[in-house]
Nucleic acid binder design. Structure first.
Lengths: 201, 201
DNA sequence: CAGCACTCATGACATCTGTCATGACTGACC
DNA sequence: GGTCAGTCATGACAGATGTCATGAGTGCTG
């Protein structure tokens, strides 16, 4: 019996996934969490064979929760389920020791098999994401550039970005301009969008 | 037995929802579609008691598919399932005759009950979304303003927006400026974001 | 038919954005 | 200790953006 802690902030989806998994005779969802903090707490409580976390959750996202579990050294393999299969996120997940990375476009019939594999010591990365990640550009941006693009995502003026980052507006303009040049785009918004799509932010 | 056609482009989620629903003794998922076009085709083929469509799908989204079903006059009630509960989308859905509007944060245990209600002639709107929609600003923007904000969402320059819309750049600047004034924001990106959040685009 | 709202456009202008140059400072590395 | 990359900043400048005014055309409504 593979005992699983499942985490997803969307109740309906989480319940449906639990229903799907509980159809399997060798798989049991022993606890469900609706955010990353609860996920880690329940995993520590239940010591499951496997943790299945949705990537996008409030507070600690799936990746941060996986990091916390790893830090706690419980040896619980983590499988991340994600709507947006962004290559940079996959890289970060694998670096974090995540054993499975499953886009929501994966056939439902395949999930149990993937979880069994991971439980048996294997890893799972969707072939398409793997290919995409292998050909993906390495992130050419510095930490500061990424941070400013994160803020720029909200659409505000350069001045408001500078206020939020506690920098001079000239400094922000320089950093964003540098990022735009590296990415070959024309506006900071395109740069932010690109960085998001690649999974860098 | 309530016969359902289910549509969602994310295989895993769709399969999980089907598993959840098929646990109910009086509910049966008779067909599954992964986009709006297939959803409408399968609904016409199977003549289900109910259609359950995810809002965000490629090609026809859930709303457009509901519109197509309504146009076909098959009398199939539609329930939309959505990740982002945006008030403008709810309004449009209800105008389109959608009988149920279910955010993914809804407890899984509640879905079957909601579907039974709708099948019995009722309607379901999540109370929080209903409240949000009732207090939501009416869309103050013209069709043209909305269209330009849609294009502006991608982050491109004014010039590229003008090219895509087949308008002069001055015209685009005027429309976007007008939209920004109406929404009380400072950049076109903030305007686009706001319009999206309200469900206007 | 007049008024109104919307669409489309031009033009003037102030401000914002992006580019480029430059330089000071810091920490890591050889 | 010198070099390098990253961080932060200032300043100059050209072009993009946003604001405002204005006007022509269209279709709808009372």
């Amino acid at each position: 019996m593979i005992r699983i802690v499942l985490a997803d902030d969307e109740d309906l989806i989480r319940g449906a996934l639990a229903a799907l998994l509980n159809l399997e005779s060798d798989i049991e969802v022993v606890a469900q969490a609706d955010d990353g903090v609860a996920a880690v707490r329940l995993a520590q409580e239940h010591r499951p064979d496997l943790a299945v976390f949705d990537l996008e959750m409030p507070g600690w996202d799936g990746l941060a929760a996986a990091h916390q579990l790893r830090t706690a050294e419980l040896g619980i393999p983590v499988v991340l389920v994600t709507r947006h299969a962004r290559p940079g996120v996959l890289k970060r997940a694998l670096t974090e020791g995540v054993r499975g990375f499953v886009p929501k476009t994966t056939p439902a019939s395949k999930l149990a098999e993937i979880l069994r594999d991971v439980h048996a010591g294997g890893r799972y990365v969707d072939p398409e994401i793997a290919a995409s990640a292998l050909t993906a550009a390495n992130c050419p941006l510095t930490a500061r550039e990424l941070e400013l693009l994160r803020i720029a995502q909200h659409g505000g003026t350069i001045n408001s970005i500078a206020e939020q980052a506690h920098l001079a507006t000239g400094t922000v303009r320089n950093y964003l301009s540098s990022a735009m040049t590296k990415l070959g785009v024309q506006t900071r918004h395109e740069a932010a969008r690109r960085a998001w799509e690649e999974g860098w932010i």
